[in-house]
Design a protein around this nucleic acid. Sequence first.
DNA 1: CCTAAGATTCGAATAATATCGAAATATGCG
DNA 2: CGCATATTTCGATATTATTCGAATCTTAGG
Lengths: 100, 100
Amino acid sequence: MARKLEDSAAQLAALGHPVRLGILRAVVKGPQEGTPAGDLQARLDIPASTLSHHLATLSQAGLITAERQGTFLLYRADFKALRALTDYIWEECCQGGACC
Amino acid sequence: MARKLEDSAAQLAALGHPVRLGILRAVVKGPQEGTPAGDLQARLDIPASTLSHHLATLSQAGLITAERQGTFLLYRADFKALRALTDYIWEECCQGGACC
DNA sequence: CCTAAGATTCGAATAATATCGAAATATGCG
DNA sequence: CGCATATTTCGATATTATTCGAATCTTAGG
C-alpha cells in the first residue's frame, strides 16, 4: 500500500498548528482509554466549538480516534498513524542515502 | 535548550503542504552539496516565484538551508532539524508511556 | 559598463483556515 | 416525556496562505 504524499502532507498540516499540537500532546498524556473533549477543553482553556473543530481536523487526518462512552466522547491518539508518519519522513530522507 | 511547541508546529506546518513536502523530497534526493532552485523548478514544474516562496517557508522553519555558489543558490536539507522534529513528536508521545 | 542568467521580491487576486457565540444534536436519567 | 450534560454543527467574520506575472536584485563574464 503506497503511502501518498498528499496524505502525509495532510497529517503534517494537522499537526502544524500550535493548538492542535497541544491537543495531541494532551490526548497522548491523558489516560489510555481516552480523554473526553470536555476535559481537553478545561485543560487547554479554549472554547468548545473551536476545540471541536480542531479535533475534527486531527480525526480526519487519522491521527486521533473518537469513541463514545455515554454522553462523553473519548479521544485517543493513533500511535500507529504517528509512527507511520515519522517513518514516512525518514523513508523519504534515507532514500538519498545522505543521512543514515 | 527547551524545544518550543510553537517552533515544532511551525516546522510541521511547513511540511504540511503537498508542494513543500515534494520540494523537501526533491532536495533530499538531490546531490549532497545542494540543489539549485532552478533544478527544483524544472523538476517540479512550478513557477519560479511560487517555488521561491515555498523555499523561503521551509528555510524560515529551519528545515533547509541555502548557500550561494555563483549565480546559483544551492538548497540542502537540514537532517539534524528533521531528526529533532520527529524525535520531538515521539518525546511527546512516549512521555505518557502508552506506546513504547 | 553592459548584458545575460539565476533567483527573489513586489503586488494583487483568490482560496483556505481559524475563531467563537448561538443553535442544534445526542445521550442518559428521573 | 422532559430536562441536564456533553459535544458538534451552523453562520459569519477576520486572518492568513497560496499563487503567479512583472519588476527587481545579484552575480559572473565579456
